[in-house]
Amino acid sequence: MGGYGDMQMIDENGLRVDGRSPGDIREITIETGVIPVADGSCRMTWGTNEAIVAVYGPMEAHPRKIQRQDRAVLDVAYNMAPFSTTDRMRPGFNRRSREISKVTKDALESVVLLELYPRSKIRVTIEIVSAEAGTRCVGLTAASVALADAGIPMTDLVVSVASGKINDVVVCDLNKEEDNYGEADLPMGILPNSGELVFLQMDGNLSQEEFKEAWQYNMDAAQVVHEMMVEALKRGDSQ
């Protein structure tokens, strides 16, 4: 996190720099079946974020050593394209991307019915082609849509959203400035039908009350985003 509330990000009417109220989510679009050669795919824009996800499989697990006899393995890779950020991102090994790949995999493995495909592999590739705070959230959300599009069985879809605090006000769905200069960031991965979680991170400074507020913002936002995901999946299927 950056500064501690030096920058004025909430005006006297309670509106944020992009005109949103504290509880508003950025604009979202979701499309499925956007990569013709993949088994399942999803393109999601969230504010100025854009994530494209492809799912391949289940298929033979190569190399042999990653194969598990009792279930499928998820091969999840999160990557940011060089032109996704204002300052060009050099391609290559990136610790942040590795960490996000891992926590995304942990989240998805919690919902995919892996036991149905022992010894196989399901590849999930998340590419961020445009970034604006919350890329791990849009990546995880789009990945669950792509998995559904590929016909992979899951106990639920996953909705991921990050709330936080700016100028001592708890707000939902941080944008770029709020993420850079705000006081806290709480991304969560939520199963919308049960309210259970598969992904949780936090950094910053929140009181217990503020924490509960941010938590609830994420829960409420997840319901709204979930409706859009369901609509996109059914729209793709009904044609």
Binding site: V37, E50, F83, S84, A131
Partner: peptide
């Protein structure tokens, strides 16, 4: 691509690519 200073998307059949121009 909103973060690139120049960009394009080309689709030929089912082949789809993106190009982004960044300046340094």
């Amino acid at each position: 691509l909103p973060r690139a200073e120049g960009s394009a998307r080309v689709r030929m059949g089912d082949t789809i690519v993106l190009a982004g121009v960044k300046f340094q």
